[in-house]
Design a binder for these strands. Sequence first.
DNA 1: AACTAATAACTGACCAGTCAGTTAGTAACA
DNA 2: TGTTACTAACTGACTGGTCAGTTATTAGTT
Lengths: 212, 212
Amino acid sequence: MDAGTPKFRRRKADRPEEIVSAALAVFAEKGFAAAKLDDIARRAGVSKGAVYLYFETKEDVFRAVVERAILPNLSVVKAMAAAHPGPLADLLRGLAGHIAGVVETTPIGGVLKMVVGEARNFPELARVWHDELIVHALGAMAEAIRNAQARGEVKLGDPRTFALQLISPLLVGVLWRETFVPVGAQPFDLPALMRQHIDTLLGGMLTEGARA
Amino acid sequence: MDAGTPKFRRRKADRPEEIVSAALAVFAEKGFAAAKLDDIARRAGVSKGAVYLYFETKEDVFRAVVERAILPNLSVVKAMAAAHPGPLADLLRGLAGHIAGVVETTPIGGVLKMVVGEARNFPELARVWHDELIVHALGAMAEAIRNAQARGEVKLGDPRTFALQLISPLLVGVLWRETFVPVGAQPFDLPALMRQHIDTLLGGMLTEGARA
DNA sequence: AACTAATAACTGACCAGTCAGTTAGTAACA
DNA sequence: TGTTACTAACTGACTGGTCAGTTATTAGTT
């Protein structure tokens, strides 16, 4: 062949990472079943056969994608777990800003959509996400809320439910962006949404005058 | 053949309904691509060929399922559109109870999961849901909130964002039930969740003492 | 009532296309 | 030159969609 441009490079160390990145893009766009291994391979700059040098099956690739999407977020969980002692309001505002930023700059939204969409076909995947990420995140938030309740900062009520109330608009905002914005829906500004949400949830939605 | 047990019955009028019901169950469980037409047909008590007497393609069946899931909810939208003039708190409490009930007694949760999961592969489906259901529901809520703001009941802030804040926990609760409860997650009591959420969002999460 | 003809709802075997996974062989690098 | 990362052609299983034939049902005739 042409000696000037080799047909391929041997780069064993980098391939898995590249394949997982390509797979993330394709899976997030198409979902598991509709994603073709040929597309993933082409996007990663290798042949389909090469994918099978590094992964056993398509499921195996999918698993790698979903699990990798957890890692960058463990730091967030850890930060939350660092049991911020100050006023809950400060913690929540900082946290919401941080998470909204992560959500806007990483493809975690696409992964979330995948986990929701493929949960029945890959229960163990939903289990990994639940056990390794969600339980910890929700638990840390609930713990912080419980502490705030003990300090008399926060009213009575189920802390886990409070935690869900706090993050729900962000999750819905992400799914909204992934699902409806591509078909013409008016997008939400996620950081602004979370700012208003935290303020409202903390301070109350009704004015003083109308409050029961 | 055996004259006692006929091989099939001719029931043209009932078939489409039965096929759509069967398809709803299979699609909600497997997602679009993983759902086999043979399964849908068997579940509906007919052969695969019979499905094609009533629907053009698999996509066509899917469309019918998703569109039918909109109808029962138009009444809810209408009820909201009946621009409740009284205090916003009453409207929201009644509405939340109603919607939580609908969500608990109908398979709309499964359909929502499908719409989210297959949005990329079926954009026109996401469009239908957005244009015919979500825009109206969100718009009606935003309108009620805007009116309440005009009456001085509610603080300043984007009404559409307020509406999203209000319904988000319900949506997340549904997706939670569909995605994580089957793999062992602790479920949420949706009506209770919404009661606490409405109360909190309306009245404020912080105690009087801690309020900024 | 009983028999027959006509209709259309329905079946199930089949086909054509697709795609996950395999492997024989080639090219890159030591 | 030997080793192996990699390619590209291949296979086999699976499934959406088709259609020739079958059977339930109704209408017509005696």
